[in-house]
Design a protein around this nucleic acid. Structure first.
Lengths: 292, 292
DNA sequence: TTGCTCCTCACGTCACGTGAGGTGGC
DNA sequence: TTGCTCCTCACGTCACGTGAGGTGGC
């Protein structure tokens, strides 16, 4: 017959609680879970079964990867509002991680069955047509994340569309964003939002319209939310560099499916296209040192 | 204009790849991602953009918490089958963790809004009726996980039901499992599976039937898969110990909803009930040292 | 010349795991 | 008495982060 009134040694209590003696000693030192009694002669720790619930809570919080300092706040805190606050914030963090991880798992799943490299992206060279466009160019600080970039793209597009509308004109297609400085994104973004116009409108606009040149472009298409496009982008840059192609113009982003089309960012489709040509032989440039 | 043929210093490459210089140095030492070139005089590392794809793959694998030793196998391995194998196994691990974590998050969510303690369980004392039962008792090794325990419970129930059927009798209710040694589960399980019978059948069975006594029982109900019942169980033991009640019989498990009723283990409902009574004053037992 | 970046140690972090060497409990 | 458990250091683990002190690049 079990006697739940008895005190347990650290090893017994650890096994009943699903913890280890080492962890329990740490929890004692951190003030998270002190033994009900400590023998002053031997230093033996004795735990009461009344401490099981706390132990179980600590175990669950640790499974959720709540740091021990936070666990202490949650366990010893008397303010239930503060406790709920910490838990709620941690729940948000966990849910974001969960959805991110499960998307990665999905993508692994997609490539696992095939013979392709896991996580690879298809890059092809496509002949891009020349396009008449009007455009606005902006530099945006790169240390604030991507939100200011998206906002600037929206603003530029709205401004361009308004300026066309003021003259009774309409765009001939969806906007294209040119990225002029991909390798310095962490310093700032240098983007140019282009709105296609037809030949008649271009004539009316005079010098405001210009021709975005056509020609061969290395191209890849990414399906998924914008925060996860970097692998596709890396694949594209890697592909171009590996083939020693020269890029002869800014990278072009086509938002084939975006918030205009769907509410689910996982369904977004973005196309990256970079004008390239065979690199001319240039024996004068050993290309061992990075360009300044 | 970006030149994708150029070599980048460690800091530039790190920022383009979404890594840190420190991590890149570690990846070099581990043989995961060696710079395209190292200046023999200064030791400066120079990376090519052709390495971006590998860098991105490493980044994703690290986000999935694949250990660096495994990352090296995946990156440097030529055997695509082995790569897929490692990825597939890691995917299983991740998916299990994901579903477990999301269930924990769900449970946090359920208690966050209320005024209850997070992760707590309601325990009440209920008057349990006496029941006539037939039973089989088994000891099961505890170091093999819970599967042998479940198997033994099934086997006992089948045996009991068969023995009743052989005499033209049927059980009067669903089985109840008694746990005789909760505090030594990690050594072995000592369970007794009971099948209720009515008074008529008990008369026919003679000494084989016995009375599982009624009386007050501390009780809690847990909804969820069996692997996650330990918090409820801990709450029950904790509750009994805190009130200094004496347990006067083995713990009783009632599988109110199990695989007979649903295919989704998250819908399982298990009821734990432990016969208790007020602990008589016992001044002779200081209860500071654990019972042997 | 002035910042900025790079280099190599070396130590810190987090929450334990794992002995080492010694003692306690039955 | 014999295992088994407990104790306290102390060091190892994992994948970096963070200076310290010095050098390189433009």
């Amino acid at each position: 017959m079990d006697d739940l009134g008895q005190l347990l040694t650290i090893g017994r209590f650890a096994r009943v609680a699903g913890l280890t003696p080492k962890a329990l000693r740490i929890y004692e030192r951190m003030g998270i879970l002190r033994p009900a009694s400590i023998d002053p002669d031997t230093g033996y720790r004795y735990y009461s079964l009344t401490q099981l619930e706390t132990a179980e809570t600590v175990r669950l919080l640790r499974e959720l990867e709540v740091p021990l300092t936070q666990v202490r706040v949650l366990i010893t805190g008397e303010d239930p509002a503060a406790i709920r606050d910490v838990l709620a914030r941690h729940r948000v963090i966990l849910e974001e991680r969960l959805s991110h991880l499960s998307r990665l798992v999905d993508r692994l799943e997609g490539t696992l069955g095939s013979d392709r490299e896991p996580l690879s992206h298809d890059v092809v060279v496509e002949e891009e047509p020349a396009r008449l466009v009007v455009s606005l160019r902006r530099q945006i600080a790169g240390d604030q994340g991507d939100a200011p970039l998206n906002a600037a793209e929206w603003a530029c597009e709205a401004e361009l569309a308004a300026s066309l509308a003021a003259r009774g004109l309409a765009p001939a297609g969806r906007p294209i964003t040119l990225h002029h400085n991909v390798l310095q994104w962490y310093e700032h973004y240098d983007v140019e939002v282009c709105l296609p116009v037809d030949a008649g409108a271009a004539g009316q606009l005079g010098g405001e319209a210009w021709e975005l040149p056509g020609g061969p472009c290395a191209t890849t298409v990414f399906r998924g939310p914008w925060e996860e496009l970097s692998p596709a982008y890396a694949a594209l840059m890697s592909w171009i560099a590996r083939r020693r192609l020269a890029v002869v113009g800014p990278a072009r982003w086509f938002y084939l499916v975006d918030e205009r089309d769907t509410v689910d960012p996982r369904e977004y489709v973005t196309r990256f296209s970079w004008p390239v040509r065979e690199r001319p032989l240039d024996p004068g440039r050993p290309s061992i040192r990075p360009a300044s």
